[in-house]
């Protein structure tokens, strides 16, 4: 059986690196991995996702509806958007964060509290991560991806070892940001 993980957010939030880190950690453990992500025009402030599938018997990198074990939401509305992919009894870990689209500022409307309430109502295994406090403590708002990975790791939702994750971080994060990213990954220790 494979483990299916969806990362979702808005272009520029760092989903791509997070997806890379999970895949690299799985590779480190000798597991087969397939993944897919949004590249191109949609990256300019659009909704983006990564699908990751770890384990044997996987034919395609794309996850079907109702097949995801875990959704890592970088943004509340985007987490809701991906809910149809969640397995019955699947887990959602979402940042308590909303990114206002230009359409909302121009009068399209977007109420993040509605999204939070919806998640609370429909997701059995839900964790909403208070990221602002962590940003303050870490003195950086650029570590949303590592904070979510930290929360997922501590919920034992990745099925990966800590040393594999740390190896992946060391292998994929530029030296200048390595300490900060490791600290963020260990935030929920």
């Amino acid at each position: 059986m494979s483990k299916n993980i969806i990362l979702c957010g808005v272009g520029g939030q760092g989903t791509v690196l997070a997806s890379r880190l999970i895949s690299a950690a799985a590779m480190k453990e000798g597991l087969p991995v397939q993944s897919a992500e949004t590249i191109g025009m949609a990256q300019r402030g659009g909704s983006v996702f990564s699908h990751i599938r770890i384990g044997e018997g996987v034919n395609t990198p794309m996850i079907g509806l109702g097949e995801a074990d875990l959704i890592l939401g970088f943004e509340l509305g985007e987490a809701v958007r991906q809910l149809p992919y969640l397995k019955k009894d699947g887990r959602v870990i979402a940042a308590d964060r909303a990114v206002m689209p230009v359409t909302a500022s121009l009068g399209g409307g977007y109420d993040p509290s509605l999204m939070r309430r919806y998640l609370q109502e429909y997701v059995t295994h839900l964790q909403i991560v208070e990221v602002e406090k962590a940003f303050e403590e870490l003195r950086s708002s650029k570590v949303l991806n590592l904070l979510l990975l930290s929360a997922a790791f501590h919920a034992d939702a990745l099925g990966l070892k800590k040393e594999s994750m740390l190896f992946a971080i060391e292998d994929n994060v530029p030296p200048k940001f390595l300490d900060l990213n490791k600290k963020a990954f260990c935030y929920f220790d």
Partner: peptide, 18 residues
Amino acid sequence: EGSSLDLPPLPVRPPVLC
């Protein structure tokens, strides 16, 4: 059959100039 969800109105995010 998967369970069908009735999602709330989601933010519209067409790609925009940075």
